[in-house]
């Protein structure tokens, strides 16, 4: 059996060719960038990714010892502090990244899906943080659950997503939402690498063929 275009390898070969064509290694991990990528605003994407990794790792340490550990151990309390502050940093960097990308209109040039996946990452992160507050097992959790149930019940979500059910919220917080957020973040980053860094608004490139300046992105 041969794949499309005469090349072999069946489905596997077809998928490999497609992946390599879309994201050849030098595009996935380039060692150069367009010269216009010269602003500190560009570092907030990678800072957000770094913070997400710290959030996942510190959450992982909390998971190792179980949900009650941090209430009864100084080391646990410190790891909980790491988890909280990495989340604060994650949201901090993500919002600045969002502001930056908005003012760059970074969705131009077939990059709308990159923007959309980024926005969904933001909403998923809010959900992940929210469920984190619910599973602290302290006064905060009790009050937030009691308040949030009204909002969620008022639109029918509370009937299925019960914020008063600690077990359900813990599973969402440590399994479902991190998984979805992780996958979305990977998709988002691959889209950035695939499409490349968005050129400046109204950027003109020097066309080497006729050496005329071409206006674009009007």
């Amino acid at each position: 059996m041969s794949g499309m275009g005469g090349a072999g390898g069946g489905w596997t070969g077809a998928v490999r060719r497609r992946v390599v064509r879309a994201l050849p290694p030098e595009k996935l991990l380039p060692d150069t960038q367009p010269a216009y990528m010269a602003s500190w605003i560009y570092v907030f994407g990678v800072l957000t990714v770094a913070a997400l990794i710290v959030v996942l790792l510190t959450g992982g340490v909390l998971a190792l010892k179980g949900p009650a550990w941090w209430h009864v151990s100084g080391a646990g309390k410190y790891v909980n502090g790491l988890h909280l502050w990495s989340v604060e940093l994650f949201m901090f960097f993500m919002v600045i990244h969002l502001w930056g990308k908005f003012f760059m209109a970074a969705w131009r040039g077939r990059r709308a899906l990159t923007w959309v996946t980024g926005a969904v990452c933001f909403f998923t992160s809010i959900g992940a943080a929210f469920t984190g507050y619910l599973v602290q097992q302290n006064f905060d959790s009790q009050w937030i659950a009691g308040q949030a149930k009204d909002g969620l019940n008022s639109v029918g979500i509370g009937a299925f997503f019960n914020v008063l059910d600690f077990g359900q919220m813990l599973m969402w917080h440590i399994v479902l939402l991190p998984l979805v957020l992780g996958l979305l973040a990977i998709w988002h980053i691959l889209l950035v690498r695939w499409r490349g860094i968005v050129p400046p608004i109204d950027a003109a490139t020097i066309d080497p063929a006729d050496a005329t300046t071409r206006e674009a992105a009007r």
Partner: peptide
């Protein structure tokens, strides 16, 4: 403080030379 820092950092990112 956090919101103020975000605005300051955002402005700094725009203004500081890279």
């Amino acid at each position: 403080v956090i919101i103020g820092l975000m605005l300051v950092v955002f402005m700094a990112a725009l203004l500081l030379p890279f």
